[in-house]
Nucleic acid binder design. Structure first.
Lengths: 241, 241
DNA sequence: GCTTTCACTTGATCAAAATCAAATGGTGGC
DNA sequence: GCCACCATTTGATTTTGATCAAGTGAAAGC
């Protein structure tokens, strides 16, 4: 038996939106079909190569985006080049900092990705008229804040081993929200990116991977494919008792 | 000559609110006088000793607060006792995590403080009916997110010296938003708290203070009173070029 | 097929911050 | 004023992770 979606006027929803994975998880779910149509008129779907920049630190924000597929990293850079990843966003997250002219961070595709861009001005106008949309954005901001604070504990107080285990646990639980089996996944970040996420060097990250592998906490194939035989054990290594 | 406030129906505003410093800076500024009266019926002003807990990690959130005076620290603790301060909030900040039953952090007065508590349920009801209020809370969440991300760079990539200088710069610019002269201030945190904020030990913090003092970047009297002769120089020591 | 390149790993050494230990100094109680 | 207590500083040593320096291994180009 077929189950019908509860959307009202489903047929009025733009075709591309109907097919969009982010439709129900992301901010677009807060919009009526008319609003969705309006936003859709101005939006452009985009494929991003791994490493492609969405916006640079200090640049003027002209677009917001929804991540439709892939992983986007948010980074901050110091004048001398030291770099820190301050956030990882997964589909179907909203990407952007409302109410600010200039971006305080760089957003860059960590993997090959797909995003749906729409002009800042159009969404800002919609937000003013649609409390439910602001509510969604507010919730997303709070979620990011919770994640940032969790990560501050990791950065400030955990050992290198705990940091690497925490990272693996984070990826295992975020990479594919649909999947039931979280024990096997592809790392969306290179060793260099992982180091920038954890406040470590690539050498230290590599050594900790080797150590976790030797202690059978994880298995690694082709540098990027990770298997976790015992998730509870990984959690203990991450210091999350 | 006396200058009149632009508030409409100023006389309808509860007396305690009229005198409240947080009235215009905090979330209450988004409310009409009637809403303010309703909220005020349920709110209780409270004096907090330094160290007093507002809410504990894992506890059920029953109250939100406005900070009227003082500094509140937000901390996370690991099972083995390692601790990290993940946020500092100054008057007239809003204190609380909307839309979540259980607090993920501990909030504790860092200095002798004063807060205005109101029941979660009452504010949640007001938020639903008042888009402008949700907008204010949204902006506050985004501000906290920006601050958290700035701090992640400090925690992950800065040296002990840069961390301590960054902390001093943060306090200098946040402790008294009114004051023009930011070059002299009281530290709201003990050395132990500063260590927990910076992901360092108290010994390392103390040594860096001594070093900054010997290099004439700061002067310290009575352990808590700091003078900064050249703010630009402090900023350079903090790595913010 | 061979070379080049790039990401990653491994090894040796070094430096920064942690740890362990003791001294100092200011504050409140008597 | 003197003592006790606590926060802070200072000193000696150790540890962790950074740095410097080679290696390895897989994929891309010729």
């Amino acid at each position: 038996m077929e189950i019908r979606r509860q959307d009202i006027h489903n047929s009025d929803i733009p075709l591309v939106c109907r097919a969009c994975e982010a439709r129900h998880g992301g901010v677009c779910g807060a919009l009526t079909s008319e609003q969705l149509s309006e936003l859709n008129k101005h939006s452009v779907r985009h494929r991003l190569e791994s490493g492609a920049e969405v916006i640079g630190q200090g640049e003027t924000v002209v677009n917001y985006s929804n991540i439709m597929r892939g992983v986007v990293k948010l980074t901050k850079v110091m004048a001398d080049g030291r770099q820190q990843i301050v956030g990882l966003q997964f589909a179907p997250d909203f990407l952007g900092r409302p109410f600010l002219e200039e971006s305080a961070i760089t957003a860059e595709a960590a993997t090959e990705s797909e995003v749906c861009n729409f002009p800042r001005a159009v969404l800002d106008r919609l937000v003013k008229r649609t409390p439910e949309l602001e509510h969604k954005l507010h919730r997303q901001a709070l979620k990011e804040l919770d994640e940032a604070r969790d990560w501050m504990l990791t950065l400030g107080r955990k050992t290198a081993q705990e940091k690497v285990a925490s990272f693996l646990y984070l990826i295992a639980t975020h990479i594919d929200p649909e999947s039931v089996d979280r024990s096997a996944f592809e790392l969306p970040l290179s060793r260099a990116d992982i180091a920038d996420f954890l406040g470590l060097t690539i050498e230290t990250v590599s050594r900790q991977f080797t150590k976790l592998r030797k202690e059978n906490v994880i298995r690694i194939e082709n540098n990027r494919h990770v298997t976790v035989p015992d998730m509870e054990r990984l959690m203990r290594y991450a210091g999350n008792d």
